[in-house]
């Protein structure tokens, strides 16, 4: 089955509401299939473990390993270490300027 983004978010909504209820001290933000958890480290880690458990009940069991880089992309926007942000921006500029 291939769910559209809207249907996907509907399907995950109850899991996220439950996670939000269980972990009121973190902020959970969703962009399509990406789930972002903002808070203090120990609370974020526990919340992510809860989300992983809740997601597994709706079929989202395989979470991809993210390498140990100095940042992450939030909706395509690089966030993190200076080098990570700059490198991402340079790649984007290269793509726009030289590949098109």
């Amino acid at each position: 089955m291939n769910a559209s983004s809207a249907f996907f978010n509907l399907g995950q909504s109850r899991s996220i509401r439950e996670a939000s209820r269980l972990h009121p001290h973190v902020t959970i933000m969703l962009i399509a299939d990406d789930t972002h958890v903002l808070g203090h480290p120990e609370e974020v880690i526990v919340a992510i473990k809860s989300i992983r458990t809740l997601y597994s009940r709706i079929g989202l069991t395989q979470l991809r390993y993210l390498p140990s880089t100095a940042g992450l992309e939030v909706g395509g926007t690089p966030v993190g270490h200076y080098d990570f942000v700059t490198e991402s921006a340079n790649k984007c500029v290269d793509k726009i300027c030289y590949l098109h």
Partner: peptide, 11 residues
């Protein structure tokens, strides 16, 4: 901190 949960082949 911000944690990102990336689901493989989520849709």
């Amino acid at each position: 901190v911000v944690g990102k949960v990336d689901c493989k082949n989520a849709f």
